[in-house]
Structure formats: C-alpha cells, structure tokens
Amino acid sequence: MISALLVMAGIAIVLGAVLGFAAIKFRVEGNPLVDKIDAVLPQTQCGQCGFPGCKPYATAIAAEEADINCCPPGGEEGIRKLAELLNKEFKPFGDNAKPKPKAVAYIDENTCIGCTLCIQACPVDAIVGAAKQMHTIIAADCTGCELCLAPCPVDCIAMNPIEETLSVWKWKYPVYALSPTP
C-alpha cells in the first residue's frame, strides 16, 4: 500500500519537475496571438481603432478588450480574416467607422511654413524636412493614416486618393450572365 503511494508520488514529483523545467526552458516570449493579429492588421498606425497603433489594438483584441470591427483601413476583409483567426462571428463596421479609399498625404509646398509638427506626428517617419525648411512626404512610405492633418497649423496637407495606374491595375472579377437574359 505504502510502496504504491510512494511510487505514484515519486512519478508525480518527477513529471512535475520535467514540466516545470520545460515551462522555463521552452518559455514563449510575448504573446504569439498578438503577433498573429498584428500580422493581419494593415499597419497604417492611424489610431482610428482608438488605440495608439496597430500593436496596441492587436494586444487589446487578444485580451478581448476590443472588438474586431474597429479597423477601417483593413476593410471588411480584415474583419473576415480576424474572425477566422479568432474563431469569431463576422461583424460589420459600425456607423462611425467606414473604410475610405486608400490615399497618400500631399504637402502643398507653397503653404508649408516648416513647423515640423507633422514630422512629429507621422507614425512611420514618412515626412522629411527640418525647422523652417519645406517638408515633403515620402509617398512610398506613407500609410495614409491622416495623423499629420490635425497638427498642421496652416492646413497645407491634403489626402490624395491613390489613382489606378498601369502598375497597380488588377484584372476584375469576371462578371457574366449565367443564363440568357430575355
């Protein structure tokens, strides 16, 4: 009787030690779910979700503190991907969060006074310039977050929607009649 108990207790201790060791040795740094959610988000860092960037929003979603339909730049497809990832129901956008066409900021260089406020606001360092020097947008790096619009004291920044050019043109989804139209 006693020996059986001892054997079982011994096994429990050994297994416990192995598990404890594994928990320390193979510890996962950070929350892998946050990274997975972050990979789905469009990385505009625009803060339209109410969080100061995509990573904080991903962290909030992972902690179930935020809904999955708060990211307008991600579009409905973004919501769909998040729903699939998190095994949740698809949720349409609320009334105050509607996706807009993709745009790139443009600084009117005649009006710019070189105050550097937009440079400080840009989350991806896509504006170059210096104090009392004209600023300009690096269009290739601009995510269209609109965070530079508010701080500009002379309202010289405009959002230009990205036009369809040959380099970004896509074949359209085929639309045709399934049966003869009368």
Binding site: D38, G53, C54, A126, W169, K170
Partner: peptide, 21 residues
C-alpha cells in the same frame, strides 16, 4: 493572379510600415 500579386504588395507595404513604426 493579379489579386495575389496585389496582396503580396500590400503585405510588403504593411511589413515595411510596421518596421518603420
């Protein structure tokens, strides 16, 4: 095909934006 290319480009842009941020 063109949809997959566009997505790849979007992904690259997002990765770059993440890195820059």
């Amino acid at each position: 095909k063109s949809e997959i290319w566009a997505r790849d480009n979007d992904k690259k842009a997002a990765d770059q934006a993440r890195e820059r941020h």
